[in-house]
């Protein structure tokens, strides 16, 4: 078992190399999960020693791309937590009906499944034409995948079930074309998306939004970093805008949480 042999100091040294050489700061990530990701990659790529792994991460730009993609978690799905999408569909998005223009930020969008889910709901509510979805991630290579809007076909059955449970009433298969092992989603959805790299740790607010979705990203951050990111979201939300988090994440312990009101039982808060 590798974790017996690699101690926390070695992990810290590696992460400090990453900051010095590449400018990415992982020092406020949850230690247990970042360590697990690093050891997983170290094991997968068969390095002779941790020193060699460290050296490669530090000096090999090509390998660092892989490192970044593998130590951040990029598992996501369409319409994950159907009850959440139901609440968006019924209680949040209709409020934007009277707005001339809707700006939404999907922070930590990974390969884009949430952005496409959201676009589908907006389309069905006849709001997509006046919406713009800013989908950002720390990781340039996942954004390349997100832009393409192609997801493995074998997941689509599950996504379709999620979609129906979330209150979708269309035939889900009308949104994509099956192409060998991939489902290519309709370009009318991605036309309304802007993909860009954004690092929640170090980058600033870049616009004001009516809705920010950041689901299952903050679980990888420690409390202090979470609070910094909440402040960033606060700075990026219009008054009466909404913030949506993952099903196990919460705004509750953030000192300014009182300025937000929770919507029913979902992890959605409205800025007062």
């Amino acid at each position: 078992m590798i974790s017996n042999l690699i101690d926390n100091e070695q992990i810290e040294t590696l992460l400090s190399d990453v900051l010095d050489a590449h400018g990415y700061d992982f020092s406020e990530y949850s230690p247990a999960s970042i360590k697990r990701r690093i050891l997983r990659l170290y094991g997968l790529d068969n390095f002779v020693s941790f020193a060699e792994f460290r050296y490669t991460v530090k000096t090999d730009k090509q390998y660092f791309k892989r490192f970044l993609e593998e130590i951040t978690v990029n598992v996501t799905e369409m319409f994950r937590d159907p009850s959440f999408y139901k609440a968006l569909r019924n209680d949040v998005l209709p409020i934007f009906g009277t707005y001339p223009f809707i700006r939404i930020w999907v922070a930590g969008c990974s390969t884009g499944e949430e952005a496409y889910s959201l676009a589908i709901v907006l389309k069905e509510l006849k709001l997509l034409h006046k919406s713009l979805i800013y989908a950002t991630d720390i990781n340039p290579s996942v954004l390349e995948k997100a832009k393409k809007g192609m997801f493995p076909l074998n997941y689509l059955k599950g996504y379709s079930e999620n979609y129906l449970q979330s209150g979708g009433e269309q035939d889900f298969s009308t949104y994509y074309a099956a192409n060998y092992t991939l489902a290519k989603f309709d370009e009318t959805l991605s036309e309304k998306m802007i993909f860009s790299t954004h690092n929640l740790v170090s980058d600033h607010s870049f616009n004001e939004f009516q809705l920010i979705l950041c689901r299952n990203v903050l679980i990888y951050f420690d409390k202090e970093l979470q609070h910094k990111v909440f402040q960033l979201f606060d700075n990026s939300l219009e008054q009466l805008g909404y913030l949506a988090l993952g099903s196990k994440e919460s705004l509750d312990f953030w000192p300014k949480a009182k300025q937000f009101k929770r919507i029913k039982t979902e992890k959605i808060w409205r800025k007062l």
């Binding site: 697990r36 598992v75 299952n216 679980i219 196990k248």
Partner: peptide
């Protein structure tokens, strides 16, 4: 442990959740 998350334990005796593979 909540369904659909891995459950990790931190040195400061708190839980972390992880939605990885």
């Amino acid at each position: 442990a909540p369904a659909d998350y891995h459950l990790l334990i931190e040195k400061n005796k708190t839980f972390s959740l992880d939605y990885s593979e």
